[in-house]
Computed example of a mutant assay.
Amino acid sequence: MDFVRILHAHMRFVGEMIKAAERDVVRNDLYAQAKVYGLNTEKARWIAGFLLEAGLLEEPRYLHLRATSLGKCFVAELPLAEENACETTEEINRDNNCIASSNMLIDKNEQIFEQLHTASIDPSAEGKASGVAFEEAIANIFNFMGFDAKRIGGSGDTDVIVRWKDNEGKNIIAIVDGKSKSGGSVSHSDISDVAIDAHKEKNNAEYVAIIGPGFSGDTIRNHARKKGFALITDAELIEIARMSCSLGLSLQEIALIFQVPDGLSRLEELIAIRQREMDIITYVVSMFEKEQDMLGSLSARDMYYYCAILMFLHP
Rank of each mutant, 00 (worst) to 15 (best):
C73M: 01
H223P: 03
K226H: 14
R266G: 07
S265K: 13
K35C: 00
S244A: 14
N140E: 12
R225H: 03
I173G: 00
S185F: 01
S180C: 11
E42R: 10
E269C: 12
K150I: 06
S297W: 04
E82Q: 13
I271F: 03
Y305L: 10
M287E: 15
F229P: 10
F74K: 08
A230T: 02
G296V: 03
A198N: 15
D262Y: 10
G214F: 04
L313F: 05
H188L: 13
G156H: 06
K108E: 15
L78D: 03
T68I: 05
A100C: 05
G169F: 03
N93W: 11
F147E: 06
N109Q: 10
G15W: 00
N222F: 13
R163G: 00
V75L: 00
L247S: 09
S185W: 05
I220E: 15
L298I: 04
L78G: 06
I173W: 02
G178T: 04
I280S: 11
I152E: 12
K290P: 04
E90D: 10
L57I: 11
L237R: 10
D122M: 00
N84L: 13
I121K: 08
V285D: 10
K179M: 06
I106W: 04
D293W: 04
M17S: 08
A9G: 03
V36D: 11
R45H: 07
C245T: 01
A34P: 00
D193T: 11
S102A: 11
E83F: 14
A32V: 07
E201M: 14
A198H: 10
G55N: 04
D157A: 15
E289T: 08
S69Y: 04
T219A: 14
S250Y: 01
G55W: 01
G127A: 08
S120P: 14
V14Q: 09
L270S: 11
D166A: 04
G263I: 02
K202E: 12
S102H: 09
G156T: 03
D218M: 08
V14P: 13
E22I: 05
N93H: 10
